[in-house]
Design a binder for these strands. Sequence first.
DNA 1: CGGTATCCTCGGAGATACTG
DNA 2: CAGTATCTCCGAGGATACCG
Lengths: 115, 115
Amino acid sequence: MKSLVLRCPIEEVMQVLSGRWPTLLIYYLKGGAKRFRDLRKDNPTIYHKMMTLELRTLKEAGIIERSEFGGYPLRVEYELTSAGHRLVPLIDALGDWWEETQGVDVNMERIDRKS
Amino acid sequence: MKSLVLRCPIEEVMQVLSGRWPTLLIYYLKGGAKRFRDLRKDNPTIYHKMMTLELRTLKEAGIIERSEFGGYPLRVEYELTSAGHRLVPLIDALGDWWEETQGVDVNMERIDRKS
DNA sequence: CGGTATCCTCGGAGATACTG
DNA sequence: CAGTATCTCCGAGGATACCG
């Protein structure tokens, strides 16, 4: 998943959203701004380093915004931009499609067996 | 991107669509059934092995269907299922969102921040 | 022609430690 | 607390050859 061949918006957006974390992070930011450490609590299996990297690419894509508050200990908050908020329903639609699809088309056999 | 923690439909659908090829393959099948070799012409940089693997996971997800016609040389065709067709507009919406976002919002916010 | 098997490498990401 | 630096390791996927 490295260099792009075409300048295709779909390929580009998938480049940003691909992988396990991006959509999860967006999901957990739906409700409003959160601190770094709270996002880690939401995603207990992600590693420190990965989270900063993932958050950075989301920021560079204009999906989230990073705010650094001075003081000690440091405090950094992330929240969805307006573009990020507009993205949420599109991702949800994919989730809905998936539930629908897996329930009906693929698992037909299972349903068959039960009846 | 291995084991899933949650039974979250979004995480699951992203598992299938993540990466460079799935959405591209879906895109190239929008117009109707295609042979294996024609899909390779559409995606000249994908390798033989990868394509069979990607096509297989798409099939297992119920997005495409595989038809094998006997004869020699062998002939295999792939086409979108009805679920696959319902997925297309959702992916397109992501592409549209991306174009819109990269053109307008991201730069806007940068300009805002400067003032 | 389409699919599988094999080998190999290269970098993503797990894990830990350190800095501001 | 958040971010960076290192080191390591494993496996996705590139490349090629062979099979049905």
